[in-house]
Every structure is written in structure tokens, then in C-alpha cells.
Amino acid sequence: MNKKVKQILTTNEIIVVYIIIALCILIGIVNPVFLGMSTAITLSRAMLITLIFAICEMVVIISGGIDVSFPAVACIAMYSTIRFVIAFGIESPIFAYGMVALIGLAFGALNAYLIAKIKLPPLIATLGVSSVANGATLAFLGTKEISNIPEKMDALSKVFLISYTNSQGITYQLTALILIPVSMIIVAYYVLKYTMLGRGIYAIGGDKNAARIAGFNVTRIQFIVYMSSGLFAGIGGLTYTILMRQASPQSLMGSEMMVIAAVVVGGTRITGGHGTVIGTILGVLLIAIVQNNLIMLGIPTHFQTFVVGLIIVIGTSITSLRAKKIANSAKV
């Protein structure tokens, strides 16, 4: 039993928890206000979009692949939808969400086709799709920022779950859109842990050939993985636009680094087969805390990219070294 406790206390997730606690104490000493409701609300909002993407990316990485096309897919799905609904005067948010989901799904299917059927390396396939999607957005849909979002959609950004006013009278509000990543987390957790589909995703990430022999339909699972990644990329893109109250065709480009970083820091092995929803949430949380509080720690903003880069390098080195240690350790 003692051994099991020790095992639990040294899992990847727990290590990230230690780091988060240490950071919180550090920031809390510098700025006591940090440890409060206001921070919780600010961080939740900061994590919202990253979480949507990170959950999908985690699933893709567990299955033994990688997807760097989601920012471009998110942008093209969101931007074309916004232009479409404005042009035709469609107000319904449900229609808009349906449309981004479909466009996202289509790009996801393209990724899946290239990876599962043509057997291209996932990085190169998704890089290519990313370039196609991004180029198409800018070349054929335009480069303008759109701020006249249809009213009913815009109204979504003003629905709040929690309102909190601190002693200085500043009000912090938690947007209801947080329910999107929250429900995704619940579904992903359930599917990955308690369905054969979820176990199949782990299985193909562990050994594709063994999965095929065992009777999994590897191609089908890969299609499901990449298509859901595309679907939620679209949904994430539209949610981002509603939150920001404007649509820009480039806004999310470049966020893939941060998302992959969060996933890997959360203990998902880049080589596939390992990863948990909890770990990914913690990874996203850690990076959000660092990004939002660098100034508080006396680190100037122009150091942000570097510090995040450093955290990723250290985080990935630790996960890789742990994997290496397990591989070299005595077998039982």
C-alpha cells in the first residue's frame, strides 16, 4: 500500500499540482489579493479557449498523432460563419454554432483522411492543412476585423454564471461560455475512461499494430479523433469571437504552441498512449497562471514568450526523462 501511495504522490499530475501550489504561494506572498475569488474568475476566463483546444489536442496526441491545424481551422470556420451570418442577417447563435461545427468537421475529416488513409506523417499533414485553411481565409475571405457581431450572438458574452465584487468595488463576472469547456471535460473524461472507443484511442497510441490484431478499427478511431478535433476547433473559434466581441481572421494563429505545451506539461507523452484529462487541465492552469502573473512576479511582459518557452522545455524534459527512466527501470 505504501508503494501505491508513493506512486500516486509522484505521478505527473501531482508534480504539476506541486508546482502550481508553489507558484500560488509565491505570487500570494507578493500580492495577497491573488489568493481569492477574483483570481479564480480571471483565470477561468483566461483558460476557457485554451481548454477547448487542449482537450482535443490531448486526445489527438494520446492516439499517437498531433494536430497543429486547429488554430487555422478555428479561424476559417469562425470567420466564414461570421461573414455568412452577417451577409444573410441570420441572428441565431445555434445556426452559427452548427455552421462552425460543420466546417470544422470537414477540415477534421480532411486531416483524418490524409493521416489514416494516405498515411502522411501527422505533423506534415496538419501543417499543410493549416496553411491551406489560413491561406484560404486571408485570400478569399478577407483580412478585415469584424466587430458588428449579430446581437443575439453578442448577447451570449453577457450571460454570467457568477458575479463577484471585491472590496474595491471591481466586479468580476464568470461568463456562461465556460460551460462549453466544462461539458467537454466531463464528456472527454467519461469517453476516455469508460468507453471502448476511449480505450481504443489509448490502444492505437500505444501500439497500432496490436490494436489492429485485437480487433479495433484503427482507421475509424483516427477519423473520430481528428474529426472531433476539427469540430471543437470550430466551436472554440466561434466562442473566442463571441468572448472578444470581434472576429479577426488571424487572431488564433500561433496558439498551437501554447496548447501543445499545456498538454505536454500536463503529463501527456508526445509519443502517444499516455495522458489524462486532469493532467491537461492542470497544464492549462499552470500556463495560464504564469502568463497572467508574470508582471506580478516582476518579470516584464516582453519576457513572456521566453518564460513560457522555458517552462515548456523544462516540462517536456521532465516528462521525457520520466518515460526514459521507466523504460530503463527493472522489469517485474
Binding site: R199, Y202, A203, G205, G206, D207, N209, A210, A211, I213, A214, G272, G273, H274
Partner: peptide, 10 residues
């Protein structure tokens, strides 16, 4: 089979 076709990650 010779490589057992087991899943190392499960």
C-alpha cells in the same frame, strides 16, 4: 505472436 501484440501503455 512473437511480439505478443500487447499494449505497453495499458
Amino acid at each position: 505472436y512473437q511480439d505478443f501484440a500487447v499494449f505497453p501503455n495499458l
